[in-house]
Simulated scan of single mutants.
Amino acid sequence: MTETHLPKAYYDMLEELQTVDFVLVELNLYLDTHPDDLEALKQFNTFSKKSRELRDRFEEQFGPLDQFGHSYSSYPWKWNDTPWPWQV
């Protein structure tokens, strides 16, 4: 694989998305044992919305993040373009 130089914004956005998704994992685990915690549920929904917005913005600039129909691809098919997010 050849080394690809990506803009700093790529890494910054990916790190922000990973941070938000980590919060979602933690809130998900908490809500599994505290399903009646309204404040935690509100936080989960807020971070869920933020995650979707970050994904949409990232994909608009840099291409798809997820496969199997979870991300749209522009024409031509973008999954041939590397690096993929898990490679950086």
Rank of each mutant, 00 (worst) to 15 (best):
M1W: 02
H5W: 00
L6P: 06
P7I: 10
P7L: 10
K8G: 03
A9T: 07
A9S: 07
M13S: 04
E15H: 14
E15L: 06
E16L: 06
E16F: 01
E16I: 00
L17R: 10
L17I: 09
Q18N: 12
V20K: 01
D21C: 02
V23M: 00
L24Q: 04
V25D: 03
E26A: 05
L27K: 07
L29R: 12
L29K: 14
Y30C: 01
D32W: 02
D32K: 14
P35F: 06
D36W: 11
D36F: 10
E39M: 11
L41K: 12
Q43F: 11
F44K: 03
F47M: 05
K49C: 08
L54E: 02
L54M: 02
D56I: 06
D56Y: 03
R57P: 02
E60S: 15
Q61G: 13
F62D: 09
P64Y: 07
L65P: 09
L65H: 06
D66H: 13
Q67I: 15
F68M: 06
S71A: 11
Y72C: 08
S73Y: 03
S73P: 02
S74H: 13
S74C: 04
S74T: 11
Y75S: 14
Y75P: 10
Y75V: 15
W79I: 05
T82M: 12
T82L: 12
P83S: 10
P83C: 08
P83N: 09
W86P: 01
